[in-house]
Design a protein around this nucleic acid. Structure first.
Lengths: 148, 148
DNA sequence: ATAATCTATATTAAATTTATATAGAATGGA
DNA sequence: TCCATTCTATATAAATTTAATATAGATTAT
């Protein structure tokens, strides 16, 4: 039931790009460095995000990647559903045929309800929200100390 | 992000036991047969449920397993948290030390909130609720036809 | 005794995850 | 034009986890 690194890294990738939304295309290598994630792995993670048109890319020197939409219009839920390949907790939610018991299974609906509750929450959180929340409370305290 | 078979089978095991709550200890082999799950695998899944005192067992002929509490007092959320080893979507929820970025990570809290939303839902569903819900709508229709 | 049932541990096969590696395509600028 | 830079595509591999199966043992009603 753990999230894959694709979702976790993908969310951080998208947030990093949101933080540089004003700067035009940014180098994936820089994201990788800032986030402490393998650049090669990020290159794989970015593929579905490009295919789903969250990101546009420019090749060559001075090239890079940029969000196609403002951070206000992209939710964490969309990113997770995309990178996990689905917004469901069990295969039979997307495809009842995988299990012959689907039509009479008393537990099937609860997994759907649980996934729904989870994505209802994640769908309310935009990249812009994360930008403004900033860090965790502990991080906020550090920032405050730095300012004072 | 998929649930493991341990949780899925474990929930069906517990529901099956709830359905036979009146019958005293039941044979795991019968649960396995009814549910179409490997008996040997169920024997492994039942171990944490016994350790957490959801189930008491009797050895020998006429032995078996029984719930220690009525189906009204056991939620699906408890079962999943137990069999998934945790109620979190990321390791840093249970142990911030696994990632040095935990104190300043802007994404960490959202995974906690998502897991919370999911378990808030699952914790409201008891085995008794599932008994009374019965099957899926399609299953209900079948049952109705059988009765008429 | 012995057959039935649960218990404990070890092993293994398959699938998935998490990368790394290699070669290629596009392009801005010298 | 050429070349360094950056993204793209595909292949490969190592590690981990999942999902079982296998074997031997413990308990107990009859």
């Amino acid at each position: 039931m753990k999230l894959s690194t694709k979702s976790r890294y993908g969310a951080r990738l998208m947030l990093d790009m949101a933080q540089h939304y004003q700067d035009g295309p940014i180098h994936l290598a820089n994201v990788a460095k800032r986030q402490g994630i393998s650049a090669k792995y990020l290159e794989q993670i970015i593929i579905p995000l490009k295919k789903a048109n969250y990101i546009r890319s420019v090749r060559g020197p001075k090239g890079g990647h940029a969000l196609t939409r403002p951070p206000e219009e992209i939710t964490v839920g969309e990113i997770v559903a995309l990178l996990e390949d689905s917004a469901s907790l069990v295969a039979c939610s997307d495809n009842p045929g995988v299990c012959e018991r689907s039509p009479v299974c008393p537990t099937r609906s609860i997994w759907q309800e649980a996934a729904q509750a989870m994505f209802d929450k994640l769908n309310t959180i935009t990249l812009a929200d994360l930008l403004h929340r900033g860090q965790s409370p502990a991080g906020k305290a550090q920032e405050l100390r730095r300012v004072l």
